[in-house]
Amino acid sequence: MDSLVIAGRTLRSRLFVGTGKFPNPRAMAGAIEASGAEVVTVALRRVDLHDPEDSMLSHIDFDRYLMLPNTSGARDAEEAVRIATLARAASGWDWVKLEVTPEPHYLLPDPIETLEAARRLVKLGFTVLPYMNADPILARHLEDVGCAAVMPLGAPIGTSRGLKTREQLSIIIEQANVPVVVDAGLGMPSHAAEAMELGADACLVNTALAIADDPQEMARAFAMGVEAGRRAWRAGAGGESRLARASSPLSGLLDQG
């Protein structure tokens, strides 16, 4: 596959993966390995004083991946900046997946607070990849304040419903001057392939891997879906037609006198 460049960083894999909700650390590590992903997301939380070691992430070699902390849990710009700042202090990593989701049922991103947080985080020197609704105008605004990529949703987080925002996504892809990473709602490899066929630059998946019976096999399938979609997009599809277009010659048929 051709490589992807975000903020000067060259990535060979166009599949990003999350680390939430896996049944155990081994399943998570196996899935990440099988996905071939180079970008891996994590969240930041209070240390649980009753379980201070937290085994979940202990199976990931942070140095092997481009770690992308998210600001999940943030309900406004101020909280997002606070979380991002803590994440950078904890790790030295300055990439952040900006996520501002004040609404608990659909976890839809707040566009106004996201834009404000993006503006502030860029000024603080972060490489900002904002999770956003599939709104082309918002994508433009986020690009204008200096975001390194945009991450529009296919469907709400964890719903596995696929590209419900397909029309809007294709406008974002058509107009964006930064990479477009389709994030959230991808439930099957075909959803990821569809996003890539539309011309998305990458996909991020977490829940679909974490809740599969075999996360490792699902990760492999997603990697293939992303690659298939990307190759198809590069190959250039010949377009649809309402009427049949014969693929076999229409001359030389046997019953023609």
């Binding site: 999350g18 994590v42 937290d54 829940t207």
Partner: peptide, 10 residues
């Protein structure tokens, strides 16, 4: 004092 660290997340 607040002490935070990374956990699994998407």
């Amino acid at each position: 004092v607040e002490i935070v660290r990374f956990v699994g997340g998407g």
